[in-house]
Design a protein around this nucleic acid. Structure first.
Lengths: 233, 233
DNA sequence: GTGACATATAAGTCTGACTTTTTGTTCCAG
DNA sequence: CTGGAACAAAAAGTCAGACTTATATGTCAC
């Protein structure tokens, strides 16, 4: 899925990026391009390309006569999908997960409300299909199948909102949901109340009831937040 | 402010990036690194660095034997500050402005609610100071002074929320607000009701009244949305 | 201490040669 | 005519080395 290892510079990034976001090189640390090139056994050109990418993520800053300095965490482009993935994969995972869940709690209800106004017939159909899929797999430890439909459901909502920025959060939400199933504790079947809420959201969107879709989705995301509080109070 | 012309590759980016986001090279277009290098009169190394950055923004995809192809708009990383700036500066401006305003309407109320819980005394003080600054400059065509305090106000809210992702939206919000004052029509003094709402939000945050802060901020962002509908129905 | 100057350093740039992957074509067998 | 294998060309990818430029820091005179 994270098939980003395109070329040598991509390989370097996959090693250096997580190291930086994990705080292995604390903010203010100075790296030298030549030294990094040696360490990773690539040419300077390749290492320079990698540094440029890190720079575009605001993770580092390259200055003459100084070197490549790690920027303070507050300046990182925390919306970059790559950065999010790196942080989710590292020690920062709980913190990143909380940030994303809060973001979801802000965005998804509004997105659902917009979907109720803008969703096409096809999108409504897909949404109900996803909800039914969730119901069908909500019992009997079919967590993987449930996850697939859950992810699809939220993707449709975000896409149907008609807002391109919301739509781009689909991948992130997918990763959060996947993380909940795979990394966090989720031995039991999903909460029946949450499943019902998804079905109701699908109904509300289909009926064009924006405020109801918004409120119901708010309940879903509030549930996700509470779930997080239980796990890491 | 957009002082990103760091190095030759930065200069190339400032020319090529806006061209792509403006649709000058429609999705599917194929560029060749060598040709681009010639056109911009830089070496291939420099052009390759620029392409790598565009690639990390998901604007283009570089493939062997094919070239550098422009990706479909839906895949662009529309959260990248640079991409946002490029689009705001181009023909896509109205569309981008709307997307951002909708995003604001989702995020800022939640951020205000969180601020009511998490804001420090210093942040509360700064917030009321900003609100007072807005009041003081709300009459007599002191639009620039008003803007400064308005931007500062929303930045404090986003920062005080304690959510790093919200905080990173400060720059974007600043750009939207600045755009409203500079590019869009705003001959008259700001809406007195909006000014009052800001003062009330500051009070609510200070009082720790999360739901009130959230609701009041929602009114502010709804106003921003309506304002946009009036300008571009 | 302060300012001007020298120096060392690391990034930045350019060039040219070479490698690798992938596409599209050609050509032969069936 | 079709299908697949072999081949050739094209463009990105990689590397090495030489050179340029900015700039932090140290030095010295004042």
């Amino acid at each position: 899925m994270t098939t980003r290892g395109r070329g040598l510079h991509g390989h370097v990034l996959e090693s250096l990026g997580p190291a930086i976001t994990a705080g292995e090189y604390p903010p203010g640390s100075v790296l030298r391009t030549d030294e990094l090139a040696q360490r990773f056994e690539v040419s300077r050109s390749v290492m320079r390309e990698a540094v440029r990418v890190l720079e575009s993520m605001y993770l580092v800053e390259s200055r003459r006569r100084v070197g490549v300095t790690v920027r303070p965490k507050a300046e990182w482009n925390v919306f970059d999908p790559q950065v999010i993935r790196w942080r989710l994969a590292g020690a920062d995972r709980p913190h990143q997960l909380r940030s994303l869940t809060v973001l979801r709690s802000a965005v998804e209800p509004i997105a659902a409300g917009l979907s109720a106004r803008h969703a096409t017939a096809a999108q409504c159909a897909e949404l109900t299909e996803c909800a039914l899929g969730m119901v069908a797999n909500s019992r009997g430890h079919k967590l993987e199948e449930y996850l697939v439909h859950d992810v699809a459901f939220h993707r449709v909502i975000l896409n149907a909102s008609g807002n391109e920025m919301f739509a781009r959060l689909g991948d992130v939400v997918a990763e959060v949901l996947a993380g909940r199933t795979h990394h966090e504790v989720m031995f039991e079947d999903p909460d029946p109340a949450a499943v019902t809420l998804h079905v109701q959201v699908a109904e509300a969107v289909r009926a064009g009831d924006a405020s109801r879709a918004e409120e119901l989705t708010r309940k879903i995301t509030v549930g996700a937040l509470q779930e997080l509080d239980i796990l890491a109070p």
